[in-house]
């Protein structure tokens, strides 16, 4: 009986890890494109209230993974304690969230979906992606001046459940209930907003 993460315990070698990553990437791109995520009209629908597919997909993905991970950990299929938790830098998370949200509604893509749009040859996707790299370039140059903000509010490798002192299981339940409520509310909003053809 193997225990995951399979790459962490060297059951999958580093080389195969890359191969699998590429395959998952292709599948990810295909599903995004197939569900219409390369259309910026669909993506910004969240902000105008006529399409909530993005919110639903992201919420569903996170609940499925959190519930799945906890069950797998319970069955001993995965060692929950060795999973990498990205450190939280509060200020850059807040600032980055605002910038990302603005970019999302102005540009009509998020970084992942812009690549999807590039793949199917959308000109606005190309422009968005070029802008993305220009942004990265500028950020790299001004980093010495903003580094302090970037690393500000360092909270370490913390999870929300840890921060509030509750168990991961309870957090998963609360998050699921929240998600279902969000699903319901978005349905209500969508019914009231005038239907948009896109």
């Amino acid at each position: 009986m193997y225990t995951g993460p399979l790459t962490y315990f060297d059951i999958i070698s580093t080389e195969w890890n890359y191969v699998i990553a590429v395959l998952i990437g292709i599948a990810f791109g295909y599903i995004m494109e197939a569900s219409g995520f390369s259309s910026s009209r669909k993506l910004v629908g969240v902000f105008y209230g006529y399409d909530f597919a993005v919110i639903r997909v992201f919420f569903t993905a996170s609940i499925v993974s959190i519930i799945g991970l906890l069950y797998m950990s319970y069955f001993g299929w995965i060692d929950y304690s060795v999973l990498y938790v990205h450190p939280t830098f509060l200020y850059s998370a807040l600032f980055g969230g605002i910038v990302m949200g603005l970019g999302f509604i102005i540009g009509g893509f998020c970084p992942g979906t812009s690549i999807c749009a590039v793949a199917i040859g959308k000109i606005d996707g190309w422009v968005f992606t070029i802008g993305l790299f220009v942004g990265i370039f500028i950020f790299s140059y001004i980093f010495p001046y903003v580094g302090e903000i970037f690393y500000g509010g360092d909270m370490g490798h913390i999870q929300i459940s840890e921060y509030f002192g509750i168990s991961n299981e309870l957090f998963a339940l609360i998050f699921t209930v929240l998600a279902v409520i969000v699903f319901y509310i978005t349905t209500l909003i969508r019914r009231r907003v005038k239907h948009v053809r896109y």
Binding site: I67, L70, Y71, A172, L173, T176, V177, A179, V180, F183
Partner: peptide, 14 residues
């Protein structure tokens, strides 16, 4: 939705 909520409640039984 029921399936998700059910499995989330199941977590508390651990």
């Amino acid at each position: 939705a029921i399936l998700l909520l059910g499995s989330a409640f199941g977590l508390l039984m651990f």
